[in-house]
C-alpha cells in the first residue's frame, strides 16, 4: 500500500518499460535477425522463445504493478497465481503430448 501514496513516478516507470519491450519486439519482428530465425531450439525458432520470454516479463509487470498483486498478502498472491501456474502449463502439456494423434496418417 505504501507505493500508492508515493506519487506517480512508479506508474510511468512501468509504462516506459512496457513501451520499450513492445517497441523491441516489433523491431525484432520487422528486422528478423537471421541467427534468431534460423536457429531451431526446442522445436521452434529461437526468435519465438525471445518473444515469449519478453511477453511473460510484460505480463509480470502488469500483474505485479498495475494490478497491484505484488503488494497484496502472500496468501492472496498464491491463491491467484497457483491455479493459473498449474493449469495453463498442464493444458499446454496435454495439447503437445497428446496432439501427436492428429499427425498420424491412418
Amino acid at each position: 500500500m505504501a507505493s500508492e501514496t508515493n506519487g506517480n513516478w512508479w506508474i510511468w516507470k512501468v509504462f516506459w518499460i512496457l513501451l520499450f519491450i513492445t517497441a523491441f519486439e516489433v523491431a525484432l519482428g520487422i528486422i528478423k535477425p537471421s541467427f534468431l530465425v534460423d536457429t531451431i531450439f526446442l522445436g521452434t525458432k529461437l526468435i519465438n522463445h525471445v518473444f515469449i520470454i519478453l511477453t511473460i516479463i510484460k505480463a509480470a509487470y502488469i500483474i505485479n504493478q498495475f494490478m497491484h498483486l505484488g503488494h497484496e498478502k502472500v496468501t492472496l498472491k498464491w491463491t491467484i497465481l497457483l491455479p493459473a501456474l498449474i493449469l495453463v502449463p498442464y493444458l499446454l502439456f496435454i495439447l503437445l503430448n497428446e496432439g501427436f494423434y492428429t499427425y498420424l496418417k491412418i
Binding site: 525484432l28 519482428g29 521452434t44 519465438n48 515469449i52 511477453t55 505480463a59
Partner: peptide, 11 residues
C-alpha cells in the same frame, strides 16, 4: 492483449 499480440502477430 499482450499475449494475443505475441501469439497472433509476432510468433
Amino acid at each position: 492483449w499482450v499475449f494475443v499480440f505475441t501469439f497472433f502477430y509476432l510468433v
